[in-house]
């Protein structure tokens, strides 16, 4: 499941643009690979993120990985409800399982991300 209209990073984050602010989450492929997600540590509101830098941590029963930021910018808001109910990321990765929003510093970084079709192709190589 790879919705159109979103942008995708190689580390399996999705980005939804709304003007200069992006909503970020992890893809269906990422949640499926991780398995039952038990914990997520989100960045603090106001924190500065850099492209491909660490934005937080996501843990499942058998794996843990860093959340990498797909773009550079400042965190605007975080999805507090998933800290209490991280399983939402499994059940609704593109909806209720969103992670945080970020004010994009450099829009040209977005151009470097994949669209749904190229992310689909990219997955075949993973």
């Amino acid at each position: 499941m790879i919705p159109d209209g979103l942008k995708y990073s190689k580390s399996h984050e999705w980005v939804k643009l709304d003007g200069g602010v992006a909503t970020v989450g992890i893809t269906d492929h990422a949640q499926d690979t991780l398995g039952d997600i038990t914990f997520v540590e989100l960045p603090k509101v106001g924190a500065g993120l850099t492209k491909e830098g660490e934005a937080g941590v996501i843990e499942s029963v058998k794996a843990a990985s860093d959340l990498l930021s797909p773009v550079t910018g400042e965190v605007v808001s975080v999805n507090g409800t998933i800290e209490m109910a991280p399983e939402k990321i499994n059940s609704d990765p593109y909806g209720g399982g969103w992670l945080y929003t970020v004010k994009i510093a450099d829009m040209s970084e977005v151009d470097g991300l994949m669209d749904a079709a190229s992310y689909g192709k990219y997955l075949e190589t993973c």
């Binding site: 914990f39 843990e59 499942s60 029963v61 058998k62 794996a63 843990a64």
Partner: peptide, 13 residues
Amino acid sequence: SLQAREQHIRREK
């Protein structure tokens, strides 16, 4: 529980 903290999963982190 919480094995994701541990070396066999998290390695250098």
